[in-house]
């Protein structure tokens, strides 16, 4: 399912007020790989994800998906290839009912209403939320919202999933269900998170960011043993390793 190499080449970005968010970030993610991006608040994780989805334009550098550069001109291809699950599901779920929301993306890709409805049903089934189809999104719990937001993205059939803080605000049971789901996916996964235990469960590789740069890149087991690095980046070893 995943056959696209995702590549960031020297990405830099500064906010309009001059604050540097990214300072020459480069990395490469192989098809089907599950990569975590960790770092303290303001390290540039969210900015990086937005850029990879073509939602923010870099001041310098480039994002490539396969052999296509992500630019406003390649928006169509990007949105078919990359699925973005936002941190706050309330930002993503805006349609009147869960079913309509999940079908929103497929409809924008130009499929027929029937096909969109069937894609939505399949996606809801994958995340175990079929029973929520007719509910309005604001009547859902945090975990349910997250699952539905995820369904809305996978209904578009992306090859690459970008997830921003997927476990933030979830209760332990909902978090566990989400982790199981992410483990089962065969998509290329890029997860920005503070939840290092999630990284151990879901990712085979971790990028550590500090000050808009990537300061470490390796297997989670190895990177999370580097106590001075974690301390410098406002991180702590995974909870299951503590005590």
């Amino acid at each position: 399912m995943s056959d696209h190499l995702v590549e960031a080449i020297g990405l830099s970005y500064a906010y309009p007020d001059g604050t540097t968010a990214l300072d020459g970030a480069s990395f490469r993610v192989a098809p089907g790989e599950s990569v975590a991006i960790v770092g303290g608040n303001g390290a540039g994780k969210s900015t990086l994800l937005l850029m990879m989805a073509g939602l923010l334009e870099a001041n310098a550098g480039e994002v490539r998906i396969g052999d296509v550069s992500v630019t406003p001109g390649s928006r169509d291809l990007v949105r078919r290839t990359i699925g973005f699950v936002f941190q706050d599901a309330d930002d993503q779920l805006f349609m009147p009912t869960v079913q309509e929301d999940v079908a929103f993306g497929p409809l924008n890709l130009g499929v027929s209403a029937e096909e969109a409805a069937s894609l939505a049903a399949t996606a809801l089934d994958v995340v175990g939320a079929s029973h929520l189809a007719d509910r309005p999104p604001y009547h859902l719990s945090g975990g349910e919202k997250r699952a539905v937001a995820l369904a809305g993205v996978i209904a578009m059939g992306p090859n690459v999933l970008l997830l921003d803080e997927p476990t933030a605000g979830l209760d332990p049971a909902a978090r566990r269900r989400l982790i199981k789901l992410l483990q089962a996916f065969e998509h290329t996964r890029i997860v920005a998170t503070h939840d290092l235990d999630l990284v151990l469960d879901v990712c085979t590789r971790v990028l550590v960011m500090e000050g808009g740069r990537i300061v470490a890149d390796g297997a989670p087991d190895a990177v999370f043993r580097d106590e001075p690095l974690l301390a410098r980046c406002h991180l702590e070893a995974p909870l299951r390793w503590q005590g």
Partner: peptide, 9 residues
């Protein structure tokens, strides 16, 4: 929200 909408086409 606008970004999330754009991301879904």
């Amino acid at each position: 929200i606008y970004r999330a909408m754009l991301a879904r086409g």
